[in-house]
């Protein structure tokens, strides 16, 4: 349980944008694609090795507001309100027990990650990333998909020759989610 206020997730207005095609940008892309691949293949323990131990992982609930309140759409409660320990505990439940019914049988998921923007932050070796996520989730014999689209605001830290995720804020586009739970990671 961490009750310290998390790092803001979105890059500041004066942050320098990292060029497309630069080595840093490529490494970020590689990180995000690898994450999506591991999660889609249900390699949750391998995914967890990409997380920093000071991780803060949230998905604030959204509500419909008039235009003048558009910037106030996100509330203080989260669909996720997690830290490193609680994410690890979720993973233990999903892969370490034989009765995590919400994902047994497991969903078939695809995470499509696009529109990746990388900014520098005040801290060298830490980057602020915005990416778009489209999750398709199919389960059992359903002929259709549950879908979820979101913007993800990440912070990655370069440590020991690789990136680790230490902040993720998931801004889901739905006010009323169409899937019955978030037993999958975003």
């Amino acid at each position: 349980m961490s009750i310290t206020k998390p790092t803001p997730s979105r890059a500041g207005p004066n942050a320098v944008e990292v060029m497309y095609g630069s080595p840093v940008y490529s490494q970020v892309m590689q990180f995000l694609n690898k994450e999506a691949r591991l999660l889609d293949h249900r390699e949750l323990r391998a995914w967890s090795s990409m997380l920093a131990t000071d991780l803060v992982y949230t998905a604030p609930v959204r509500s419909t507001r008039r235009v003048e309140g558009f910037h106030e759409e996100f509330g203080s409660i989260g669909h996720f309100d997690d830290d490193y320990n609680s994410i690890m505990s979720r993973i233990d439940r999903l892969v370490g027990t034989a009765s995590a019914w919400s994902e047994d049988p497991p969903s078939r998921t695809r995470r499509f990650v696009t529109n990746v923007t990388v900014h520098e932050t005040e801290t060298p070796d830490e980057y602020a990333i915005s990416s778009y996520l489209l999750l398709t989730r199919n389960r059992a014999d359903a002929k259709d998909y549950k879908q979820l689209s979101a913007e993800r605001l990440d912070r990655l830290r370069w440590t020991g020759g690789r990136f680790l995720l230490f902040r993720r804020e998931i801004l889901v586009d739905q006010v009323v989610l169409g899937m019955p739970n978030l037993a999958v990671f975003l």
Partner: peptide, 22 residues
């Protein structure tokens, strides 16, 4: 603390209630 406990145990992603909604 209570907000985190509630979100981790109940509701959308709660490890208790995601099995009920299934």
């Amino acid at each position: 603390m209570m907000r985190q406990a509630a979100a981790q145990g109940t509701g959308t992603s709660g490890v208790i209630e995601q099995d009920d909604s299934d």
